[in-house]
Write a protein that binds this DNA or RNA. Structure first.
Lengths: 199, 199
DNA sequence: AAATAAAGTTAGCGCCGCTAACTTGAATCG
DNA sequence: CGATTCAAGTTAGCGGCGCTAACTTTATTT
């Protein structure tokens, strides 16, 4: 009994709703969407989503989860583009992180901007730790130490903070034109060398 | 004709509503509040707020604005606690910033977590630039350079990012117990010395 | 004291999240 | 293969919310 959802009434409504919500979030902001609007986009009644999701929160969790894996893949890919120990690896990782935030600003804000609203979900927590593990790996390789070395943890965390904070400031428009004007590549190289001296 | 709002029907409903909303945001999250609930808390009808605010967004703007000045004061106070050039100044500034985020996590998320939803408001933008100016001032003093020196801008921005990002990770619960476990003071000293070497 | 204007009220519209009860149709099975 | 089952749709409706219109109350102005 393999459930092939394409053979049911609508097709894969679940995925289509997630995609519709994702698009609405990108065009109207993280809270500027409604389930009803997503239903209209998917061409179903407003009661249909509740066959696939518990409630609104559950839908958002679905959107976040798929975004997490997309972001994780982008980061892993960036890390794999350079050999371990190469400083370019850290820069590339930063670009991947910021790139995702720029590409999907609404979803990025949803993932991280809600004051830990979803931090209690084990599935999301696991995905999050997976992404930090990529940073840990790269930093550990760079320093030639173990991933659980306190020095590695501290520097990886600092790197994460610096890039993460930059993303929010970018999305908030603080870096636009007249305001601060930051060269992103230069910034990422600065934080990379600040926390991981070539030595 | 001095408008003393205390002499009207309710008193200063405007301020009481802002306070009620602030508390609701802290207890139920940035989007977990409703105007109706704030009205109940203030003991007025649900139509009353519209004598003082254009709409929901305008109320939020009011909450954010008062929070901005509170945060700015805390930062200024921290900076003033140490003489210019003293590295403790930067650490204190960081503690003030993170302290505010910890004290008012909901409002902090509201201020910065909405993907630049309020970045187009000139009043808010001005307050935001004022806070960055404090950081610029401290960094310029430390390096003995002008506030508009590119080196100062770059390092001040990096500091801001590192602290800002840390706040979000804290609020998202990434630093809790089993997860990452960061010594905040050590972290702030690390980023301080990383971007502002004693030289 | 009357007029004015500020700041409340009630009533109500339309949208939304969500549920209950019903219907449809694909997969399973005697 | 026809009957059965059950996943996945539907419509109808409740209560809450944001917001507006129209009315009422009360402080200030003249």
């Amino acid at each position: 009994m393999i459930k092939n959802k394409k053979n049911y009434h609508h097709g894969d409504l679940r995925e289509q709703l997630l995609e519709a919500v994702r698009q609405l979030i990108e065009s109207h902001g993280p809270d500027g969407f409604s389930i009803a609007e997503a239903c209209r986009a998917a061409g179903v009644s407003t009661a249909a989503p509740y066959r696939h999701f518990r409630d609104r929160e559950d839908i958002l969790k679905g959107v976040i989860l798929s975004a997490m894996t997309r972001m994780g893949s982008a980061m892993q890919e960036a890390a794999d583009a350079h050999p371990p120990g190469n400083p370019e690896r850290i820069v590339a990782l930063g670009h991947a992180y910021v790139g995702f935030a720029r590409r999907e600003p609404g979803v990025f804000a949803l993932m991280f901007g809600q004051a830990g609203q979803h931090s209690d979900d084990p599935q999301l927590a696991e995905e999050g730790e997976g992404k930090f593990a990529i940073v840990l790996r790269v930093v550990a390789d760079h320093l030639g130490r173990a991933m659980d070395d306190p020095e590695v943890t501290a520097r990886a965390y600092a790197l994460w903070c610096a890039v993460h904070g930059h993303c929010f400031l970018v999305l908030d428009g603080k870096t636009d034109e007249t305001k601060i004007d930051i060269d992103e590549d230069a910034y990422l190289r600065l934080v990379g060398s600040a926390f991981l001296p070539p030595r």
